[in-house]
Design a protein around this nucleic acid. Structure first.
Length: 462
RNA sequence: GUCCCCAUCGUCUAGAGGCCUAGGACACAACCCUUUCACGGUUGGUACCGGGGUUCGAAUCCCCGUGGGGACGCCA
C-alpha cells in the first residue's frame, strides 16, 4: 500500500509551492490507489497559529485535494515523541548535551571564520573510553542524536537520482530542546515511521535533512521510505518566492477569479510532463502521474499560461456554476443581481472572451447598474448620420421578436435604409447599452436585456 | 567558507546515443475569420551554458569550468 503525506507547518497560508507538493503527493497516492495523509507540523509553538491551520485546510479544500487520513497534529503526539526519545537515550542513540546556545553561537562563528562548516563539536558525545565533562549547574541540557561518524548516507532520490552525503558532514543534531519538546527532524522521522509513509514527496529544501532523518530511522530500526525531492517554484520574475517577495496564498487565486481546475492543471505541468499533453483533468492526471517525469530543475511561474488555462476552463464551465461564482463577486460590489437580465445568459455570452471570474463580473455588472452614458465614447461612436438609423431601431424594437436573430435583422434593416455600414449603428448601441465599445455580437447583447430596459438606455441618446 | 542540487526557445517542457537541419504549449508577430474587441484558425521567428573527452555517431554518457539555487538553527 502506497502512503504519501503532505506535512505543512502552520506558520502561514498555503502557497503555490506547497500546493504543488500537496498535489503531487495526492496524485501519487491516487495513482496507486494508496492513501494520502495530512499532517500539521506545529511544533514551533511560537509561529504556529490556528488561523494558519485553517488557511491550509481552506486551500486544500478549494483545490479539492482531499486527504484520506488526518489531519494529525504533532503537538498532540508529544507523548509518543518523548517515549521514543527515552528509548533512544536508553539505547545509546542519543545523549544529553549541556552546551549553551551562547556557546554554540561562538563555536559556529569561529568555525565560519576558519572557512569550516559550522557544527557542534561533540563535547558531550559519549564514546567508549571517553570521560565526559561534569554537567554544569543550572544548565538545562538538550538531547542530541548520536550521528554515525564514518561512511556515507545514500539514497536513490526518485527525482534527483542517487545522492550521497558523508556522515562526516553532519553533526549531532538536537532532537529535544531544553524544555524537552522534540524538534522537527525528529518528529518527522517518528511520524513517517508511525504513519507508515512509503513515499516522502517534499520540497528540495529538505534534501539536506534527508540523510539525518535516514540515520535516525536506521537507529530506530525503522524502514526507510523512498524520497522524492521536488525543486522549487520561482516567481514570475525568476526570483525566489518568499513572504516578502511574490509568495501568495492559493486562496489569492480564488480571489483573483481563477478556477481551481485551472490552477491545478497549471501546477501539474509545472515540473511534470506527460509528453505534449497540456490540458487535462485531474482524473487524467492521476491516471498518468508518476515520479519519473518530474523535472529536477527549478521552474519559473508563468501567470500568462495560467491565464490561458483559466480562460480555457472558463469556456468549458457550466453557466449555472459560473453564475454561482460570479454572483458573490457582484454582491461584494453592492450590485443587485435581478432575475432579468439573466446572469446565466450574460455569462454564457461573455465567458468566451474573459480570463477570470472578476472580468466576468465586470462584464455582468453593467447589466444591473444604473448606466450613465459615457459622453466621450458616445461622441466617438455616434455619428450624426447614424441618428436617424438609431431612431428607426428604437421604433422597430417595439414589435420585433425578442431574440438575437430578429434583432440582428432589424439592425440590418435600419442601416440598409440609411445606407450605413454595420459599425455605424452597432457601435453606438454597444456604448449606450453597456457603456463599452467592446462587447460580444451586438444583437446578442441587446437580446440579453428586457425590451423596456433597452428602450430606456437608448433614450439617453435622443 | 563547506556540503548538496540544478542547467534545451523569453517561460513551462518533449527528448533516456542515431527517429533532432531539436517537437509541443504559453507569450510574441503576421494573416484569415469578423459587427467592435475578443475567441477561434493558419503561418512564422527564437533554444541544446562553455570547454574537453568517450563513440562511427552526443541535447542525451564522463570530466572540468561557468552560472544559478539550496542547506549549514534549541525554525519547519
Amino acid at each position: 500500500m502506497i502512503r504519501t503525506r503532505f506535512a505543512p507547518s502552520p506558520t502561514g497560508f498555503l502557497h503555490i509551492g506547497g500546493a504543488r507538493t500537496a498535489l503531487f503527493s495526492w496524485a501519487f497516492a491516487r495513482h496507486h490507489q494508496g492513501q494520502f495523509v495530512l499532517r500539521i507540523e506545529d511544533t514551533d509553538v511560537a509561529r504556529s497559529t490556528p488561523a494558519a491551520v485553517q488557511a491550509i485546510l481552506d486551500g486544500m479544500e478549494w483545490l479539492g485535494l482531499a486527504h484520506d487520513e488526518g489531519p494529525f497534529y504533532q503537538m498532540q503526539r508529544m507523548d509518543r515523541y518523548k517515549e521514543v526519545i527515552r528509548q533512544m537515550l536508553a539505547d545509546g542513540h542519543a545523549y544529553y548535551c549541556y552546551t549553551t546556545p551562547e556557546e554554540l553561537d561562538a563555536m559556529r562563528e569561529e568555525q565560519r571564520a576558519k572557512g569550516l562548516k559550522p557544527r557542534y563539536d561533540g563535547t558531550w558525545r559519549p564514546e567508549p573510553g571517553k570521560t565526559l565533562p561534569t554537567p554544569p549547574a543550572g544548565v538545562l541540557p538538550v538531547i542530541r542524536f548520536k550521528n554515525p561518524t564514518d561512511g556515507v548516507v545514500a539514497w536513490d532520490d526518485l527525482v534527483k537520482g542517487r545522492i550521497e552525503i558523508a556522515n562526516a558532514e553532519m553533526d549531532d543534531l538536537i532532537i529535544a530542546r531544553q524544555d524537552g519538546t522534540p524538534t522537527y527532524n525528529f518528529c518527522v522521522v517518528v511520524d513517517d515511521w508511525d504513519m507508515k509513509i512509503t513515499h516522502v514527496i517534499r520540497g528540495d529544501d529538505h534534501v539536506n535533512n534527508t540523510p539525518r532523518q535516514i540515520n535516525i530511522l536506521k537507529a530506530l530500526g525503522a524502514d526507510v521510505p523512498l524520497y522524492a525531492h521536488l525543486s522549487m517554484i520561482l516567481g514570475d520574475d525568476g526570483q525566489k518566492l518568499s513572504k516578502r517577495h511574490g509568495a501568495v496564498s492559493v486562496m489569492q487565486y480564488h480571489e483573483d477569479g481563477y478556477l481551481p481546475e485551472a490552477v491545478l492543471n497549471y501546477l501539474a505541468r509545472l515540473g511534470w510532463s506527460h509528453g505534449d499533453d497540456e490540458v487535462f483533468s485531474m482524473e487524467q492526471f492521476c491516471a498518468w502521474f508518476d515520479l519519473d517525469h518530474i523535472t529536477p530543475s527549478a521552474a519559473q511561474f508563468n501567470t500568462e499560461k495560467l491565464n490561458w488555462l483559466n480562460a480555457h476552463y472558463l469556456k468549458l464551465a457550466d453557466n449555472a456554476r459560473l453564475a454561482a461564482l460570479v454572483k458573490p463577486r457582484l454582491e461584494t460590489r453592492r450590485v443587485v443581481v435581478t432575475e432579468t437580465p439573466s446572469l446565466e445568459a450574460i455569462i454564457g455570452l461573455y465567458k468566451e472572451r474573459v480570463t477570470n471570474l472578476n472580468e466576468l463580473a465586470d462584464a455582468a455588472e453593467v447589466f444591473y447598474i444604473e448606466l450613465t452614458p459615457n459622453a466621450e465614447l458616445l461622441a466617438q461612436h455616434l455619428a450624426p448620420e447614424a441618428k436617424p438609423a438609431l431612431a428607426d431601431f428604437i421604433a422597430g424594437i417595439k414589435d420585433v421578436a425578442w431574440e438575437a436573430p430578429a434583432i440582428g435583422a432589424l439592425i440590418k434593416q435600419c442601416i440598409g435604409t440609411h445606407g450605413l455600414k454595420m459599425p455605424k449603428l452597432a457601435m453606438p448601441l454597444r456604448v449606450l447599452l453597456t457603456g463599452q465599445a467592446q462587447t460580444p455580437s451586438v444583437d446578442a447583447v441587446v437580446a440579453l436585456f428586457p425590451r423596456e430596459q433597452v428602450l430606456k438606455r437608448l433614450a439617453a441618446a435622443v
